Simulated scan of single mutants.
Amino acid sequence: MKKVLIVETNVTRYAGTHDATGLWLGESTEFAEELQKVGVEVDYVSPKGGFVPLDPRSMKYVDESIMEFYETPDFKTRALSKTLSPSEVNPDDYFAIYYAGGHGVMWDFPDDKELQSIAMAIYQQNGYVTSVCHGIAGLLNIKDESDHYLIAGKLSPDSRRVKKC
């Protein structure tokens, strides 16, 4: 059975500052938990692989459900300390890619060619390319083989809802 790939940031600080940033915790845990409740497996990837920092601002918005998922050995290991690197991902294993948010993504998602290639491959297999909040930065520069942006023309008339890419 195919899985969902969750993309997380490796950025620890806002560019040019000493201010900490990183993954918005709930935007990864809540999504992963809902998928696992219905039997869908997830993997975690980040642009560099390995360690994923948490945006400290996100911690004041956690609830009991987020904390319980955060504290699981699986999440602590696979989502925060040993994420896959893009070179370790086979797009054929996934039916969706989900770009989690957090302010750090603004620096490492938009220009990551390997993640763009993975997302495009999943899309070309009739898969889903999705994001939440700042995670949309990962969708901005994905282009098809004709050099057209994947998200071009995907906004609905009310500009608040996005169609399936």
Rank of each mutant, 00 (worst) to 15 (best):
E71K: 13
R57W: 03
E145F: 05
H18Q: 11
E8W: 00
D147Q: 12
I118A: 05
M1E: 12
I142T: 12
Q125I: 01
V45H: 02
T9N: 03
A119R: 12
V105Y: 06
T17P: 02
D74G: 01
E33Y: 12
E33P: 00
V42W: 07
E34I: 01
A119H: 13
Y94K: 07
R57Q: 15
Q125Y: 01
I136N: 03
E30C: 11
S81R: 15
S159N: 14
M120N: 06
V7E: 10
V45F: 01
S28D: 09
P157R: 05
D43E: 13
G127N: 09
V11L: 05
T77E: 14
Q116F: 13
K60D: 15
E145G: 11
D144W: 12
Q36W: 07
E8H: 01
P53D: 05
G16R: 09
F69K: 10
V132W: 03
M106V: 11
A100I: 11
S28R: 13
L140R: 00
L5A: 05
E41F: 03
R57H: 05
D112I: 04
E27R: 14
W24C: 02
S85Q: 11
V4A: 15
L115K: 01
D63N: 15
G22A: 07
S81L: 12
Y14R: 03
D111R: 06
H18L: 06
C165V: 09
P47D: 04
Y44A: 04
D19P: 00
F95T: 03
A15M: 05
A79M: 04
Y128E: 13
G135M: 10
D112M: 02
V162M: 15
P86F: 04
L150D: 14
I142Q: 04
L139R: 08
S146G: 05
A100E: 06
F95K: 10
P56A: 07
V162R: 05
G135A: 11
H134N: 11
D43Q: 07
Y99L: 04
R57P: 00
T9Q: 07
Y98N: 05
T72D: 10
D74K: 07
I6E: 00
L140C: 08
E114Q: 08
R78A: 14
R13G: 00
S117A: 15
P86A: 02
D158H: 06
K113W: 03
E33G: 01
T29P: 04
K163L: 14
L84T: 02
G16Q: 08
